[in-house]
Computed example of a mutant assay.
Amino acid sequence: MSTATGSAGKVWIVGAGPGSPDLLTLRAARAIEQAEVLIWTDSLVNPQLAAMAPAHCERIRTSTLTLEEVMAVMLERVAAGRRVVRLHDGDTCLYSALNEQLCRLLDADVEVEVVPGLSAYQATAAALRAELTIPGMVQTIVLSRAGGRTGVPERESLPHLAALGASLCLYLSARHVAEVQQELLQHYPADTPVAIGYRISWPDQWLQVVPLSAMAQVSEERQLIRTTLYLVSPALRAPDTARSLLYSASHDHLFRPGAR
């Protein structure tokens, strides 16, 4: 196992994407392939991604560790001059504990690079061959979660968000699906399409579009409690006549002046 004693180590905090290795960004793949220490969220990240690290790489699973334990390992390895990759599921800016880790690393004067990852809502929309912003129908995408044990600020409560009628992507909400459905029905029609995605892009992916009124029943029948995304959107039944103004022959713009 190589160590670069006497040289400065560095930490890469990397978004692993939704699961499939071919949905990693090139920058993320390079970071994993060059890692000397891989600290990975084994409860959520596809093991195939950890296998991309070189044979000499030290692999540390985090499913049984606290944040303090993870940080202790990370700081110890980087102090020894090692190239440390902290691999999170999805994207680093969504529910990844990035802020807590970054604060501790920067306080310790550790060099850090953050590498984004594809998010599950994007992979889900792609699997459905769906656009979530349809002209004249919906132009806003909201990423959020049910309150659960950690709660959300009152201004971001589900009823407030649902009142927008936007494309709503809900993470970490499967355990509260009955309550979520009840709240959404106050603002969306009962037949609003809901895509339920389990382990999107993994070999055992399951994805189905159901009416909002069946969201809880289907989730409970499938016994979904984790790694599940709900995508609630009128865009999932967009009419064939909906089209982007940008590409319309009747629309002028900077690169196509006077087009008719």
Results as ranks from 00 to 15, higher is better:
L172Y: 05
L172I: 08
L172G: 02
S173R: 02
A174H: 07
R175P: 00
H176P: 00
H176E: 13
V177Q: 03
A178L: 04
E179W: 11
E179H: 09
E179I: 00
V180C: 11
Q181Y: 03
Q181H: 01
Q181F: 01
Q182S: 14
Q182Y: 00
E183C: 07
L184I: 02
Q186G: 11
H187Q: 03
H187N: 08
Y188V: 01
P189G: 06
A190K: 11
A190C: 01
A190E: 14
A190Q: 09
D191R: 06
D191M: 01
T192S: 04
P193K: 00
V194M: 02
V194P: 02
V194F: 04
V194L: 02
A195E: 05
I196F: 03
I196V: 09
Y198E: 13
Y198W: 15
R199F: 09
S201L: 12
S201D: 09
W202A: 12
W202Y: 15
W202R: 11
P203S: 12
P203E: 13
P203A: 14
D204L: 09
D204Q: 14
D204T: 12
Q205T: 14
Q205P: 13
W206L: 12
W206D: 13
Q208I: 13
Q208V: 15
V209W: 05
V210T: 06
V210R: 08
V210L: 11
V210F: 11
P211A: 05
L212D: 09
S213M: 10
S213C: 12
A214V: 00
A214R: 15
M215A: 06
A216R: 15
A216F: 11
Q217K: 14
